[in-house]
Amino acid sequence: MNTLSGVMDPEVPVLSVLDLGVIRGVRINEANVEVDIAPTYTGCPAMDVISSSVQEAIIKLGVSKVEINTVLTPPWTTDWISEEGKRKLLDYGIAPPQKEGRQKRELFQRAPEIGCPRCKSNDTFCVSLFGSTACKSLYRCNACLEPFDYFKCL
């Protein structure tokens, strides 16, 4: 687990795979290790990098064989990101995802209010639902005028 907390998301380098909540299970059988990983966004190119980084990190511990399994159930949502992870996101300047359920958007509904990670104002504006990576939307703060990323709620 210590080793895995050092494996970072290539797109959001402050989050480890543990913060992200994608590790669903680790089984150790003498010299073989099996890791279950839940994919985040369906088309996210970072998933392959994450799998190979996990594999590499474990092999460095002297394990002879590492097997990565993809598990789809229960599906990963942004609720799997740990509280610690959400705090790290905010410090990094990315507005963390809101809790699913209460604020979950239904088809064609308005976007929920997102706080600016810099000045904390709630007076923000969604510039684009799709941002620089599959997991982010692009926002701008009307108070401090800074653009910022919002970690898209799934």
Partner: peptide, 10 residues
């Protein structure tokens, strides 16, 4: 960026 994202999802 938006259509490229949608393309990736698909």
């Amino acid at each position: 960026i938006a259509v490229s994202n949608i393309s990736l999802d698909l």
